[in-house]
Design a binder for these strands. Structure first.
Lengths: 213, 213, 213, 213
DNA sequence: AATGAATGAGTATTCATTCAT
DNA sequence: GATGAATGAATACTCATTCAT
């Protein structure tokens, strides 16, 4: 359903997860993180087992604990990782943007594009009662929230916009992105342009500004 | 974070949990449902154990299964219950409303009021990695979504509004309500009026229409 | 597999098990016994639940315990019942018989006929690891064993046959009846005559006396 | 009652159950198998709990599942194990035998000897309604049956014996072995020779060929 | 550091039996 | 006697984590 969860979880990238790989400590650490991202994405936090994760890395179960103290720790590390990778993207849009409208449009489009691209990786069989893992107040969500909030603040400042309730605005924008993104994923063909138009229209001008289909 | 989950979860009722055998069947059924609502709210679907639930009712563990076949079944029953109780509220607002704007304002206010009132029952310590239980495609969420969507459709028709992407609109409105509601809950004093103004402003007029604090 | 279990379980007879029936104490007692026979037959002792049994009678679960102290007690009562009903049959064959050979043939034929007739009632989905319930040293088995043993003894006496190890002989005959019966049940068409010929041939004359197919 | 069940269940081995973590994997596997054999033997399939089994091994409950996926799986493994160990025995007798009579005699004697030797391990207090576990169509029983059937077939072919109903014959022989074996176990002194003489006599010549006590 | 077997607390669920009505 | 809801002990199985090698 929701997907803000995955918002920051940008690229699982180099998906070469053969048995063992290079055996550098950092390589192992990254391998575990990547595997965790995939497994949590597919199964949710509770549904995922650390065996699921390490199976994907080809490492031994004990090895997991050389890198992360617990299941929860990887989960949080994942969150941080996501947030860290999301920041540059936001920054780019921020630099390119001339005003809030263009920033919002750029960020939304980037998000929906990412969502569409990563679609297969995520949204796999989510079991009964399992929501997305990162909907929770996790470093990740918090970080992304803060990130977006700050970008908003600076953009709005830059154009001397009248003050708004930034917390509400940020929360609302993220929520809209998430939900519209979810709906978009269910449609064929997947229309990221339409989703962007809708979300941006709503936030910038409300109901009257919505695209007419 | 999210709370649309709890949108429909109206009142957990009187918490008189007397003995065990003397309670009537309906009382027990309701007691279990109420306990389940609380426990799922606090611990999430996976975090909750049926022992947690029955402990709260004072019943024996086996008794639980006289009423619900499984943990999942209570969960779904809870969902239905929620949706069933939300419907009348929406209907009332629908009857009272003269147009989309007034309907939206009425529904939002009703939701935020409810949220504020039920505050204690919900939002207790959510553990690691646990998202809200009802974020999932549950009868509840589905039902509420459909409910809201239909109300929107009829209201917009009534006023001969130009067509919009109803799915996106519904999803976005629910998301905004949920997230703004969550933020509202974190503030003191709890300002349902402000939350309503914000959410309604955003949806009706976008950024420019937002209340200026 | 085995079926001596059912050997004595002659007729489940009057299979009218509507709700409640005549409500005589004896009627209820019999209803429970009949239901138990069927349920134990289908599910085995462990697989059967007393709820399964009482469901078949239309009585309330508590009522069961007005008639039998426990699940085990019905089981044993069933055994006794079976043995009690098997006795007359043996007696008839005993009266008709002129010698051991004719007695054996009569008894075997009676058994195989019964087995074939009752086939559907018994041998339903037996779950993993569940053998027939009555293979155990139950009053029933013991009683039938004693019954058959005595019949053998008297028949052999009557014809002044040389002494044999009666315990072994009885055990062997019952075993052969059971196993050949089981195999017979698996074949189509069901050939009770052939099974009788085989079992009788083996016991009376061994391998050389077996029917040549 | 029956004991063919135990026919193949050769030796429960040395009962040295030392620590836990130091034991080798194969040792643990075997320990579980041995414990399972004993527990199933004593309690039957349903009566046995996996806790009973692991208690006997001194291992932790989870360890059980490192070796066998379920209670049923040990049960089946036990069966396979039994069949695997029975095969050589039959083969030896087959090689030694010059005709069906000598083969039967050899096999029966081997079985009764084994039964007498293993007596203590098996046949402990069998609880209410519990039949032997292996009476069911288990790999073990099936395998042994097939084993015996084939041996019979080849032996009879070798001597150009007239055709018989092999299925019936095999079933009958196994049944006789099992039941006579059970009775034998109840007698003191335990007379394997007598049991062999009886079983072989019956099968080869029927009633007239039975040993006269 | 890596391994992977051992651990055991924890969970959902069943079911024989009791007992208030 | 009959009823059927309440009871709670008992069971199979999972999985995060530890630890000897």
């Amino acid at each position: 359903m929701s997907n803000i969860a995955y918002f920051p979880a940008m690229p699982p990238r180099e998906d070469n997860r053969p048995g063992k790989r290079e055996r550098t400590k950092t390589a192992n650490r990254q391998a575990i993180l990547d595997a965790a991202r995939q497994v949590f994405g597919e199964l949710g936090y509770d549904g995922a087992t650390v065996r699921d994760i390490i199976r994907l890395t080809g490492l031994a179960s004990g090895t997991f604990y050389n890198y992360y103290k617990s299941k929860e720790e990887v989960f949080d590390a994942l969150a941080d990782d996501g947030a860290r990778r999301f920041r540059p993207l936001l920054r780019v849009e921020f630099e390119k943007a001339t005003d809030f409208a263009s920033f919002l449009r750029g960020a939304m489009r980037a998000y929906f594009d990412f969502l569409a691209a990563e679609h297969e990786t995520w949204r796999v069989n989510r079991p009964a009662g399992e929501a997305h893992p990162t909907v929770r107040s996790t470093p990740e969500v918090t970080a992304v929230f803060a990130e977006v909030r700050e970008a908003f603040e600076r953009v709005l400042e830059r154009e001397h916009a009248p003050p708004v309730d930034l917390d509400y605005l940020t929360a609302a924008c993220i929520a809209v992105a998430r939900e519209v993104g979810d709906k978009m994923l269910e449609r064929r063909p997947m229309d990221t342009e339409g989703a962007t138009a809708f979300a941006v229209g709503l936030i910038l001008g409300g109901l009257p500004a919505l695209p007419r289909p």
